[in-house]
Design a protein around this nucleic acid. Structure first.
Length: 565
RNA sequence: GUCCCCAUAGUUCAACGGAUAGAACGAGAAUCUCCUAAGUUCUAAAUCCAGGUUCAAUUCCUGGUGGGGACACCA
């Protein structure tokens, strides 16, 4: 049990309460921890203020709490606790020091096997900021659930078999420019797809040719199939590069083309069970009676639509991995689709636990992203712009650094910046992605956090003092700002638990930002290295605890850690 | 038409039924013989409307208004 949980538990025992509504006072001058007594007061039919006063008196005399709380004060209907500063500093810093990387983790998930599917890219298509929100969010959820004691299994499902593939290949064959280009092939395919949609808009009659190509690919033989194999490999290689740059790892990557055969078999079974029916030449799921409309499964021309693969995958996941739950991290615009999918599975008797984690989409100041109009920001573009600016900024500050060192720092900050910008907004908010804003590195940004961490580490480096060697007296940490910092550090485990329950990484981004703010403030007001030895050692122990929490938090968000910047 | 999401300083967000609605950016001012100025300090600035529930509503409910999205062969 973590520090604050333990204290809350002690208060509950002292008051003989089952449940208690703890919160933190808005001002540090009011106390460190607070208990609102409204409910208790109405139970006991007393005025909250009077009850609070009574309880404060009672608790002040409670010897079992003396060690932990300096004073207990009633302020209106609140019972406010001031922690014993010596206990706070000593117990908390030792807790962090002992737990190290695991500080903040809990066992809420009871080791349940949860598969998280995210970053569902399309081969032969551009990889843009929308995908980046998905992968950043999905990766953070994966890490967050791991920190919350789940056996999280991250997977991706790549769509390599849809009609968009045929479109891209059609354009590729027609346009020698693409074949001649020396650009990264995977990236090039995305550009080719944009050109294809634009060309098809002008000449809609060419859609038939595209349909032919699709059939050839599905037949798994012929020139188009071979071209598909070759180009698919480029996309996959490009994805692998993106994953590496962003520090994202999957246990397994599924591909749509591998699911089709099993999916088609399943469709036959479902037809027999009357879950799926023929209508207007297509095979559909009629879910109107459930208020879910109609989902087409097989086109009139006999080619498979997206749900075919998804249905097969939904079963495969549980079979192969023995899951307790299957989570899909998908754009909110696919909510209806997933409700339909889950309903079909339910109708065939599969009621295993599945959850769609929806996040809202990314749009641009000019409007919705669209391949057709070219209104997209691709990963490549965004990365280059951020990287360039960060290289300049880094160079400016470190004239003596080598090129490769600057590049290393800039690359790391680039990945962190991209992820952080997309994670700091809660999932149900639409992100209007403004590239100008993303190129600013002040304020609530990844750079601010990394900079704070770099400062911490710089101080720690300057004092070569092994953290466990001499017995440090932490009781000398008496500054109000030190108390604030300690309290903030103490709250980290609660943030991880809350963010996990709510699938909300932005709780963590905000917390880390606030912690860094407090540290920066402290840094300016109080000198650590120039303090007399006893104080210096205690302060170093404090900032090591802060550094530990920042590092742990970065890890949960999937941000790379920099020792210097 | 049905369903879903959003609405808080000029802008982008926070406030998880509780205390004086917090930040960041932007604007105006200050700050490097002092542990990294990607920093810090100060100033100005906000709850869409109408009802309801509650001791207490930015938060929950109902109804508006405004914005966005989904709804048969896209994924």
């Amino acid at each position: 049990m973590y520090f604050l949980d333990d204290l809350k538990q002690k208060i509950k025992v002292a008051l003989n309460l089952e449940k208690a509504n703890f919160s933190y006072p808005p001002e540090t001058t009011l106390g460190d921890l607070s208990l609102a007594v409204f409910e208790l007061a109405s139970q006991e039919k007393k005025s909250p203020a009077i009850l609070a006063t009574e309880l404060a008196t009672r608790l002040s005399q409670d010897l079992s709490l003396k060690e932990y709380f300096q004073t207990v004060k009633a302020v209106g209907p609140y019972l406010n606790f001031f922690l014993q500063p010596e206990y706070l500093a000593t117990a908390l810093i030792n807790e962090v020091k002992n737990a190290k990387d695991s500080y903040g983790q809990n066992t809420n998930g009871q080791n349940q096997r949860v598969m998280i599917e995210y970053s569902n890219g399309n081969t032969h298509k551009e990889y843009h900021v929308g995908h980046l929100r998905n992968i950043s969010y999905g990766d953070a959820i994966n890490r967050l659930l791991t920190a919350n004691g789940y056996a999280a299994i991250p997977v991706s499902y790549i769509n390599d078999f849809g009609i968009h593939v045929a479109k891209t290949l059609w354009e590729w064959q027609n346009n020698p420019e693409f074949q001649a280009s020396s650009e990264n092939r995977g990236y090039l395919l995305g550009k080719c797809y944009v050109a294809a949609t634009q060309a098809l808009e002008k000449e809609p009659e060419k859609k038939e040719v595209v349909g032919q190509i699709m059939k050839e690919i599905e037949s798994r033989q012929g020139a188009s199939y071979e071209l598909w194999q070759k180009t698919r490999a480029w996309s996959i290689k490009y994805f692998a590069q993106i994953y590496k740059e962003l520090g994202v790892k999957f246990t397994h990557i599924f591909y749509e083309n591998e699911m089709i055969d099993a999916g088609l078999k399943l469709v036959e079974e479902l037809k027999e069970k009357k879950v799926l029916v023929k209508s207007e030449g297509a095979i559909i799921a009629d879910l109107d009676q459930f208020g879910l409309g109609v989902l087409p499964i097989i086109r009139s021309d006999g080619t498979a639509l997206y749900p075919v693969g998804d249905l097969a995958l939904a079963l495969t996941k549980f079979q192969q991995y023995g899951l307790d739950e299957s989570i899909y991290v998908v754009d909110v615009r696919q909510s209806l689709y997933f409700k339909q999918l889950f309903k079909i599975l339910e109708l065939m008797g599969d009621t295993r636990l599945r959850l769609q984690l929806a996040y809202d989409f990314v749009t641009l100041p000019e409007g919705m992203m669209s391949s057709r109009t070219g209104n997209v920001i691709t990963y490549e573009e965004l990365k280059e712009k951020i990287q360039e600016k960060l290289s300049q900024e880094t160079k400016k500050r470190h004239l003596d650094w080598t090129k490769s060192r600057i590049a290393m720092v800039a690359d790391s900050l680039t990945a962190s910046t991209i992820k952080f910008e997309l994670l700091k907004v809660s999932a149900e908010k639409i992100i209007t992605f403004n590239i100008e804003e993303a190129l600013k590195f002040d304020g609530y940004t990844a750079c601010y956090l990394q900079y704070g961490y770099a400062r911490l580490k710089s101080i720690i480096r300057k004092e070569a003092w092994a953290w466990s060697k001499p017995p440090v007296d932490l009781k000398v940490l008496k500054e109000p700002k030190e108390r604030e910092l300690l309290m903030k550090v103490a709250k980290y485990p609660e943030i991880i638990a809350l963010a996990g329950q709510k699938f909300n990484p932005s709780e963590v981004t905000r917390y880390l930002f606030e912690l860094t703010q407090l540290f920066n403030d402290y840094y300016h007001e109080i000198n650590i290295l120039k303090a007399e030895p006893a104080l210096r050692h205690a302060r170093l122990a404090l900032i090591k605890a802060i550094a530990q929490v920042l590092a742990n938090g970065f890890k949960v968000l999937g941000l790379k850690i920099l020792e210097e910047m």
